[in-house]
């Protein structure tokens, strides 16, 4: 008989419903990842007891770990399902939705708050317009390389999930948005509106809510130096607050 992989999946029909665990057995194939297994369940929605069930709902898109969509909790850790290879996972494999965001259904959650946070911190450069004005400022290779590290953030939510200060009782915007402030503020033109972004970080749910647990950088699938950005912006917001108080 061919090998089967056991998946135990946390299911829930809607935010008001009671969650339950359902077991599935999926025939193994080499290089199988969690997404491919979920696709097999779609094609054959029958649970381990042999009962017909509804296909599991989950999100995915690029399948190469650049879009962030398929983030879920796999054996207790938040990560992307596409790059989670079955060969590297302890079995049975447990899948659950992220817990720091409102549940939609099964493994699908609503991460809109992360996009709203980007708006709160004004993570853009205020260009004059899209008409032709020639190139932007020259940038050294070192500066580009540091910025590139930060610009790979795919708003997946792993850092939010790992952060103890992101929870239903707090308004903390979380590590991802803070790192994006670092990114834009470190750009020569972005820096022109540095203060507006520092102000945003000093407001409610801002950088002061970081408890320095340092889980975020470890949780980031793109190895973004989140704690470094947070430390840097901590210093900058403090300096800016002092300047505002005494400066003028």
């Amino acid at each position: 008989m061919s090998k089967k992989i056991t998946f135990i999946i946390k299911r829930c029909d809607n935010p008001q419903a009671v969650a339950y665990w359902e077991e599935f057995k999926v025939p193994y194939f080499p290089k199988m990842n969690v997404v491919a297994a979920l696709m097999e369940i779609q094609k054959n929605p029958v649970n381990a007891k042999g009962e017909a069930t509804t296909p599991v709902a989950w999100e995915c898109n690029c399948l190469e770990e650049v879009c962030g969509a398929c983030t879920m909790i796999i054996n207790g850790t938040a990560r992307q399902a596409c790059s989670a290879l079955v060969d590297n996972l302890a079995q049975p494999i447990r899948l659950a939705p992220l817990t720091k965001f409102p549940l939609v259904r099964d493994l699908v959650v609503d991460r809109q708050v992360m996009f709203s946070n980007l708006r709160k911190v004004k993570a853009w450069i205020d260009i004059d317009g899209t008409y032709d004005m020639g190139p932007g400022p020259k940038i050294s290779q070192n500066v580009q390389e540091a910025a590139y590290e930060l610009s790979k953030c795919m708003t997946c939510g792993c850092c939010m999930e790992a952060c103890p200060n992101v929870n239903s009782k707090s308004k903390f915007i979380g590590p991802a948005a803070i790192a994006q402030v670092d990114l834009v503020n470190s750009h020569p033109t972005g820096a022109f509106r540095k203060e507006a972004r520092l102000e945003a970080l000093m407001g409610e749910g801002g950088i002061a809510d970081c408890g320095n647990a340092q889980n975020c950088a470890k949780a980031c699938p793109k190895e973004i130096p989140l704690t470094r950005s947070i430390a840097k912006l901590n210093r900058e917001t403090s300096a800016y607050a002092l300047k505002k108080l005494f400066g003028k």
Binding site: I127, M133, G136, Q141
Partner: peptide, 15 residues
């Protein structure tokens, strides 16, 4: 390209 550059895209750079 120059417009995207002005928007802050982290294009690789020459020396």
């Amino acid at each position: 390209i120059y417009l995207m550059d002005r928007m802050g895209v982290t294009f690789n750079r020459t020396t």
